[in-house]
């Protein structure tokens, strides 16, 4: 069964095991590196196509950054035969119950919200995570609304948004991210008109 333990064979065994394991890991890492990156890109792309009107360009290829209030945001323009039909804004907030929430918010060129998609979050399963589309009707209420006349904050704070039951903090954070996205969108259209 087990070999006798001497300092020499203990050291050799541990070294060999560590070397072999790291070699295997390095191999697996280099194989899965590309699929992992691709999975992330695919996630962003599917979020974009969910939140903007029909387009025929490659929004990720035309990505640009915009600074609003000292923070930098990524904006993906959606174009149909060369004309801009909408923007997908990658917005975020630190005000979530579990910290940061990353959100993709899509706007029509007439500044109505087409849809929203949660990219990542740390909210409580069963409570705050209901902000994810399909888990509850929370995100549906933003569809087709214009932040001009639909006040993006929860009813408790005097807005028009129905908060998720027992998750006011998460709902507030979600509204915060949507509002930042709207500011970015306004900045985009302003710059676009100047051009």
């Amino acid at each position: 069964m087990a070999k006798e333990s001497t300092i020499k064979n203990m050291a050799i065994t541990l070294t060999v095991i560590c070397l072999v394991s790291s070699a295997i890991l390095g191999g697996v890492y280099s194989i899965t590196k590309d699929p992992i990156e691709m999975a992330q890109v695919a996630k962003t792309n599917s979020a974009i196509s969910k939140v903007v009107p029909k387009f025929d360009n490659d929004p990720s290829a035309e990505l640009f950054n915009i600074e609003v209030g000292g923070k930098s945001y990524k904006v993906y323009p959606a174009k149909m035969s060369g004309n801009i039909v909408g923007y997908a804004v990658e917005s975020y907030t630190s005000a979530g119950f579990g910290g940061r929430i990353n959100l993709m918010v899509g706007f029509n060129i007439d500044s109505t919200i087409v849809n929203t998609a949660v990219l990542s979050h740390n909210e409580t399963p069963g409570l705050g995570d209901k902000m994810v589309e399909g888990k509850s009707d929370f995100s549906v209420q933003f569809k087709g609304k214009n932040p001009e006349d639909f006040k993006i904050s929860v009813k408790k704070d005097g807005g028009d948004v129905d908060a998720i039951t027992a998750s006011t903090i998460s709902s507030r954070a979600f509204c915060d991210a949507v509002n930042s996205a709207y500011k970015v969108f306004l900045e985009c259209t302003k710059q676009n008109k100047k051009e």
Binding site: A2, K3, E4, S5, T6, N9, M10, T13, L14, I17, C18, S21, S22, I24, L25, V28, Y29, T32, P35, I36, M38, A39
Partner: peptide
């Protein structure tokens, strides 16, 4: 594997497989 470094060796082997599973799931 010599008896005295049994547990550390097993832990390294297990940790390697866990990381492999981690990468595959991530991808």
């Amino acid at each position: 594997i010599p008896g005295k470094v049994r547990i550390p060796s097993y832990i390294v082997i297990i940790a390697a497989f866990v990381t492999v599973v981690q990468f595959v799931m991530q991808a």
